[in-house]
Design a protein around this nucleic acid. Structure first.
Length: 551
RNA sequence: GCGCCAGUAGCUCAGCUGGAUAGAGCAACGGCCUUCUAAGCCGUAGGUCCAAGGUUCGAAUCCUUGCUGGCGUACCA
């Protein structure tokens, strides 16, 4: 907001410089305007002179000097400028500029921070996409929360977002699930059974088997494992759905891989690729020439059994996404899916689609520690902690907060002891507490019959404390932060922003009283706090965390 | 072997397109509740940003090489 005003002034000034021959056009849009790290370096700073000097072999400070001269005294919002360090131009804004942020916050209220930069771009966010072989593991939890946060960010920045869950209830894995279920069923009936070597060993299989016995007794002893698969899959999907609901995640669409077969898309893809001479037969299998797309070797897309490998449906699925008119396709995958990415992208390119529209967010694993030791997890052996269990322990807010605290590229360590024993120390409470405190102040003000003024009558020049300016500056930064976090698909920045804003408020709270004897000052501070509450709440909601009124 | 990700304070991690003096939380130590919620605040201490080269006005950030850890590298998904 304020920054964009300043940016415009600087851009105009740059243009004047071009017209006057002070420098060429070359540096346009390459310099930045930033909030300096250290005190005394102004409210904003630009490296414009350094960039121009680099490109044109001039001395940076000379360029900065020239820039200042062109800027002259056209100073609607600028109090003064300084040339500093190697050639930065630092801007000191008039103090009354900062309070102008407050009115738009109230006007836009819960929409403050939202924008239209997405231009209604049709975006598909595909995430979770776990096959129904067991409860959601902690890794799926990270995936789910990350994908949802990304979708939320894109929504509030004016994208047309669809959330999709892609799954497959056929194939080898699912047959193993059926076999595992039947084996447990027989075991519980004390009949002879053979548990598959690579079967699913979790207790949840026993639970499903018990349900079957309750429903049908021993009448299914001779029934095919496919029926067991169907029952198990249904039960597991129901569980997954419950879990997702518990952490507040909804999908617009569940896409079953089976659809691709029904619509003949797999054949279509193979034909397309064959027509482009990118497919050949070898040893009874059908191979895709991925080596022509920079990979080490070609890959099988149809096995000698006639069954496709996962790659073919994955590619066909992307074709389907393009056909549905999506302009940006975001896939949130765990790191273990890294191998599929180049294959799918090669397929997309081979089919003549623009692979730059497909963006894969690969998040690294979650490691769980308990008593300082890493807990090893495996879906098959069921030595894993489920999202449900974790959510029960720490609650949905903390769950979201923790999973979003790290950038996707980083491994995430989840300390179970810390989460259980010290849940009060959770940083999520730090942010929520700030919001609750603000609500409490408002309530107290009401009890004292002090009402928050409207923008017309409030005396904002009463706000003179450095802490107040810090808060205003941080709030002013919010819309741009949301926009850049959305574009970079980086929800963790919202979390860090919230911690900073909450921290600034806690300091302020401890140093200054909002409700004072001075009526004008009290009104101004109430006005500030009301806006702050809006920003905190908006930030929290953006990442799906509640903003409690009291704690 | 090859590919992707990471290596920043005792621990867990930020550091957005290279910017000016390196950041937070936790842990440690010392203070602050007759005053709007102490789930809070203030202060102290803690660093060869894995290593070595390179690029330039300027590198935690970019390039090269090496080391360490994670994940892949299937006619499993």
């Amino acid at each position: 907001m304020i920054k964009s005003q300043l940016k415009k002034i600087i851009d105009d000034c740059f243009q004047k410089g071009v017209e006057q021959g002070a420098w060429t056009d070359e540096a346009r849009n390459t310099f930045t305007v930033e909030i300096p790290k250290h005190a005394g370096q102004g409210d904003f700073s630009t490296n414009l002179a350094l960039i121009i000097a680099g490109k044109e072999k001039q001395k940076p400070r000379d360029v900065a000097q020239r820039f200042s001269e062109i800027l002259g005294t056209d100073m609607s919002i600028i109090d003064k400028t300084e040339i500093a360090g190697p050639g930065f131009v630092n801007f000191f804004l008039r103090e009354n500029v900062w309070t102008t942020i407050l009115e738009p916050v109230y006007q836009q209220a819960e929409l403050f921070g939202h924008s239209t930069i997405g231009n209604k771009l049709k975006v598909l966010v595909e995430f979770v996409s776990a096959n129904p072989t067991g409860p959601l593991s902690i890794g799926h939890g990270r995936n789910a929360i990350l994908g949802d946060a990304i979708a939320r960010l894109l929504e509030v920045t004016g994208h047309d977002v669809s959330r999709e869950y892609y799954f497959n209830d056929a194939g080898r894995q699912m047959r193993v699930l059926g076999a595992s279920t039947k084996a447990r069923y027989l075991e519980l009936l004390e009949r002879e059974n053979e548990f598959p070597e690579d079967g699913y060993q979790g207790d949840y299989i026993y639970d499903i088997a018990k349900d079957i016995i309750e429903q049908s007794g021993d009448s299914m002893v001779d029934v095919d494992i496919l029926n067991f698969k169907d029952i198990a899959q249904k039960a597991i999907f129901k569980e997954i759905d419950t879990t997702l609901k518990a952490i507040g995640i909804k999908f617009d669409n569940y896409f079953n891989e089976h659809t691709l077969y029904e619509e003949g898309l797999l054949d279509e893809v193979v034909q397309d690729l064959r027509a482009k001479n990118l497919v050949y037969e070898k040893e009874d299998a059908t191979w895709f020439k991925t080596s022509e797309f920079g990979q080490e070797q070609d890959r099988v897309i149809i096995k000698s059994t006639g069954e496709p490998t996962y790659r073919l449906p994955d590619i066909a699925y992307h074709k389907e996404k393009f056909k549905r008119g999506f302009e940006w396709m975001i896939n949130v995958f765990g790191a273990d899916h890294i191998a599929t990415v180049p294959d799918v992208l090669a397929g997309v390119r081979a089919l003549g689609f623009d692979e730059s529209k497909v963006k894969v967010i690969l998040h690294q694993f979650v490691t769980l520690t308990r008593e300082g030791k890493q807990v090893k997890m495996s879906t098959r052996k069921a030595t894993f902690i489920t999202v449900d269990e974790l959510c029960d322990i720490v609650g949905p807010d903390a769950l979201r907060f923790f999973f979003l605290m790290r950038k996707p590229d980083s491994q995430l360590e989840f300390d179970l002891d810390l989460a259980t024993k010290q849940s009060q120390e959770n940083p999520v409470y730090y942010v929520q507490y700030a919001h609750a405190r603000l609500c409490s102040i408002e309530k107290m003000a009401q009890d004292k019959d002090v009402s928050r003024p409207d923008s017309a009558s409030v005396h904002l020049d009463s706000l003179q404390e450095p802490e107040e300016f810090e808060l205003l500056k941080t709030m002013a930064d919010f819309p741009e932060l949301v926009a850049s976090s959305a574009q970079d698909l980086a929800p963790h920045r919202i979390i860090f922003y919230l911690m900073e804003l909450a921290g600034q408020f806690h300091s302020y709270y401890n140093k200054h009283k909002v409700l004072t004897e001075d009526a004008k000052l009290t009104e101004a501070r109430l006005y500030l706090c009301g806006a702050l509450k809006i920003v905190l709440a908006n930030g929290l909601h953006l990442v799906g965390i509640t903003a409690p009124e009291n704690m």
